[in-house]
């Protein structure tokens, strides 16, 4: 290859060598210098004990939502729920939170330590320290409450004690449901030996 006498040809000749080598170097950094990718930790595995889950199937933080025939929306959430064992259809759950919003604008929030949902009967039973807070400012504590899921009908099994906007209240039983007299309006009914103590502020 004759020696080139002018500068331009020399320059091009050198470039023909340097440029490909630079390209090669650049390309190699793609593989040699890049972060090593560990394929095994690509998918995050749940660390839940698989055997325990298989032996005892559970759902964590399940929720149930529905609307009753009279138009009240019922939502139930829990920390953990176990499906019904064979032969029965009451699923049990722990730390339940239920909310019933009635079409007349009223709302009742129920909290309980544990509970069970009988799908066939459409009945939710709350047990443990049950606490019912209503939008009208009533905070009722009792030990067991059953609430129908098809229609708005919450009933306490035993006596209740409540703090109300007008004082402390105790009663033998409490039901929350549609007013039989005028449908569409909802009544919180306290029954047998209702006793209220109001302390005037002045």
């Amino acid at each position: 290859m004759t020696a080139h006498d002018n500068l331009h040809s020399k320059l091009v000749a050198w470039l023909k060598v340097i440029l490909p080598v630079a390209a090669l170097a650049l390309l190699s950094t793609l593989f040699l210098v890049s972060r090593t990718i560990d394929p095994s930790d690509a998918i995050p595995y749940a660390e839940v004990d698989i055997e325990e889950r298989i032996r005892e199937p559970r759902m964590t933080s399940p929720t149930y939502a529905g609307v009753t025939t009279d138009g009240a929306s019922v939502t139930v959430a829990a920390d953990e729920a176990r499906p019904a064992p064979e032969g029965s259809d009451t699923a049990s759950a722990t730390r339940l939170r239920a909310q019933i919003a009635t079409p007349d604008g009223g709302q009742a929030d129920l909290l309980a330590d544990s509970g069970s949902l009988d799908a066939r009967e459409g009945l939710l039973t709350l047990m443990g320290a049950v606490e019912i807070t209503t939008s009208t400012g009533y905070r009722i504590t009792t030990d067991q409450v059953t609430s129908a899921l098809e229609r708005t009908d919450v009933q306490t099994a035993g006596p209740i004690s409540a703090t109300t906007p007008m004082g402390d209240l105790t009663a033998g039983r409490m039901t929350l449901g549609e007013d039989t007299a005028s449908s569409g309006s909802y009544l919180l009914l306290f029954q047998d030996r209702v006793k209220l103590i109001y302390r005037p502020a002045n």
Partner: peptide, 12 residues
Amino acid sequence: VEIQADQLAVNQ
């Protein structure tokens, strides 16, 4: 004031 009755109905 203490109020006792058979039933108390509260409109929601």
